[in-house]
C-alpha cells in the first residue's frame, strides 16, 4: 500500500504558491474543500486562478478568497448569490470566464483522462464559442474545448483511506471525482480517514492513484445555501 496521508492541511498544501491555478470541487457550498479554502486564506496567497463551478457566497466558500482579493481569475459556470463577486467582475478587478457546466466537468475529466481536447455541442452559436474551433459531426455543429491545466486540485470526499481511495456522499460528489488527478497535485480532505483495508474495494468511487495527499478535516460547517423544507402536517 502506498500511503498518501498527511497530518495537517498546511502539510497537504505544501508547494502551493501565488499565481497558481487551482481546481476546487463543490456545487454551490455542497462538497467544497472547506479546510483547504481556510488555509488558502491563512496563507494569503494572491493572483490565483480558480476553477470551480461556483464562487461561494459572500462570507463562505470561495467568497472568503474573494473578500481578501486573492483571486485574479475565476473560471466557473454560475456565479449568482455573491455580491462581492459581482462587484469585482463588473469593476474589472477580477477576470471571469463563464463556461457551460458540462464543459467544465468534461474539461476536468479530460485532464484526468489524458485527452487534450474534445468536441461538445454546448455553446455553439453563443459567445462561448467565439474564437474556438468549430466542426460539424453528423450534421450538428460542435465546439472544440481544451482540458484544464491546473497546479492543484482541492477535493472534498466523505470517507477515504490511507491509500487515497475515496467515497463520496450524496450530491457532495459533484465535480470532486472528475477533478481528482486532473491537476499536477491532488489534495483530498475527508470527514473520516480510515486505515487501508477498511473500505470495501467494490464501493470505491475514486481509486487512490488519482490522489497525492489525503488528510482528515474536523468541524465541517457544511453550510446550507437554500434550506427548503415541508411541514409534517
Amino acid at each position: 500500500m502506498i500511503n498518501k496521508t498527511v497530518s495537517t492541511v498546511s502539510e497537504a498544501l505544501t508547494g502551493i504558491e501565488d499565481g497558481m491555478t487551482l481546481m476546487l470541487g463543490g456545487f454551490g457550498l455542497c462538497g467544497i474543500p472547506e479546510k483547504a479554502i481556510t488555509e488558502l486564506v491563512r496563507l494569503q496567497l494572491t493572483q490565483l486562478t480558480c476553477i470551480s463551478n461556483n464562487a461561494g457566497v459572500d462570507a463562505f466558500g470561495l467568497g472568503l478568497l474573494l473578500q481578501q482579493k486573492q483571486i485574479k481569475k475565476m473560471i466557473a459556470s454560475y456565479v449568482g448569490e455573491n455580491a462581492e463577486f459581482e462587484r469585482q467582475m463588473l469593476s474589472g478587478e477580477m477576470e471571469v470566464e463563464l463556461i457551460p457546466q458540462g464543459t467544465l466537468a468534461e474539461r476536468a475529466r479530460a485532464a484526468q483522462a489524458g485527452f487534450p481536447a474534445f468536441y461538445t455541442p454546448a455553446g455553439y452559436g453563443t459567445e462561448v464559442a467565439e474564437g474556438k474551433e468549430v466542426r460539424e459531426f453528423n450534421g450538428k455543429m460542435h465546439v472544440l474545448e481544451q482540458a484544464f491545466d491546473a497546479d492543484f486540485a482541492l477535493i472534498k470526499a466523505w470517507k477515504g483511506d490511507e491509500a487515497g481511495n475515496l467515497i463520496f456522499k450524496g450530491t457532495a460528489r459533484n465535480f470532486n471525482p472528475n477533478m481528482c488527478g486532473a491537476a499536477k497535485i491532488t489534495v483530498v480532505e475527508v470527514e473520516e480517514l480510515v486505515s487501508a483495508g477498511s473500505l470495501d474495494p467494490n464501493q470505491i468511487h475514486v481509486p487512490g492513484i488519482f490522489v497525492q495527499r489525503i488528510f482528515q478535516g474536523t468541524d465541517y460547517e457544511k453550510r446550507i445555501e437554500q434550506r427548503t423544507v415541508r411541514s409534517k402536517s
Binding site: 463563464l98 457546466q101 464543459t103 454546448a122
Partner: peptide
Amino acid sequence: MVKGMGGAMDLVAS
C-alpha cells in the same frame, strides 16, 4: 446581470 449559464447551454445544445 451576469449569473452564468450553469448547465443550461449543455441542456439546450443536446
